[in-house]
Nucleic acid binder design. Structure first.
Lengths: 183, 183
DNA sequence: ACTCCTTGGCTAAGCATGTTAGCTTTTTGG
DNA sequence: CCAAAAAGCTAACATGCTTAGCCAAGGAGT
């Protein structure tokens, strides 16, 4: 039997494909194996099991998101940079709602997850530093922005904003509130 | 065999007990049945299946939350009322982190869920109305507050705020940003 | 080119869960 | 007091995760 040429990376690639197609709950080893035209147990040569695969998918998504916001922010400081950060964050979720939903909500003690999270938070802190915010003021503002952006994206992807009012406008309003008092 | 005296309500009660003990992923028909000292299929006399049970749990949690914030807000209008709303929301999540995490993120087209969600949002709109906000301004502000509060609670419950800085202070800061410009 | 070892695939089997079907017993209403 | 509805049960099946152990493909060293 010719080999399938799987690696850990490829398995995560296929897992993302499954998530895009079937949603976070559709991510199952059986589905990934089918996509790889491989028997389910074969995946264990590349991944420790379903929980690990979920973690790896989460890390991948977080890194994609970090890449997107980093690109959006390069060369732009101050409030304009923060606005770009927030816009890029939401645009990633809009483009990949199921991937974003596949990110674990639970406390994962996995160091790879913590590292990926730190990378994203690092970008935000850099922008805040560029606005003259440091120390606990920066921490407070970073937490506010993270919470708001994550919450907005989650609710929007879940179809939580039912009213007719323009959601883009609401997001701009949120951005204004969160950048208040910054230069 | 003496009957167990189950009803739909009782099954949801037990499900909440399981969620508090084992987390959202631990919510399984088998676990609930064990707690009820009943065979798993017996639950189907009271609940259509696991997806329905999850929905019912979510509705119950949302209603508990609505009750909590309503009690906190009664008799308090203006910015003070909004502050109480936000404080009460976070305190519920702090008291029942696993229940809150058990609320479905996905678009559930269940009308009971939509109704429960409307009840909570209704409280928020009433408070904003008391602050003189109506129309699209109220919608924008309500979306901002919902997103921020939900995101903050989610991240905090997930252990997302690792830095040493006081999380209470960060939440007060977030509250200030979101009530800016209101009376 | 041959051998050997690592690697990546396989099948078989076990366990947990959700779900359906169909039976029995308890309760309740007339 | 009886009949019907309601609430429990066991049996059986499907799907999914996981472990164990086997076998072939492919490369490294001689």
């Amino acid at each position: 039997m010719a080999r399938a040429g799987l690696t850990g990376e490829v398995v995560v690639d296929l897992a993302l494909e499954v998530v895009d197609r079937d949603g976070p709950d559709g991510l199952t080893l059986a589905a990934v194996a089918k996509l790889a035209t491989v028997a389910t147990p074969s995946l264990y040569k590349h991944v420790a099991g379903l929980p690990e695969l979920r973690t790896l998918v989460g890390v991948r998504v977080m890194d994609e998101l970090t890449e997107r916001v980093t690109a959006a922010v390069l060369g732009h400081g101050g409030v304009a940079g923060l606005e770009r950060f927030m816009r890029a964050y939401r645009s990633y979720v809009a483009d990949h709602p199921r991937r974003y939903a596949a990110m674990p909500q639970r406390p994962s003690d996995d160091p790879r997850w913590a590292a990926a999270s730190d990378r994203l938070v690092g970008v935000l802190f850099a922008q805040l530093d560029g606005c003259g915010l440091t120390g606990s003021a920066a921490v407070d503002r970073a937490r506010a922005i993270r919470a708001a952006v994550h919450g907005f994206a989650t609710l929007e992807a879940a179809g939580g904003f039912q009213l007719a009012e323009d959601v883009d406008a609401s997001y701009r309003h949120l951005t204004e509130l969160l950048t208040a008092g910054l230069r």
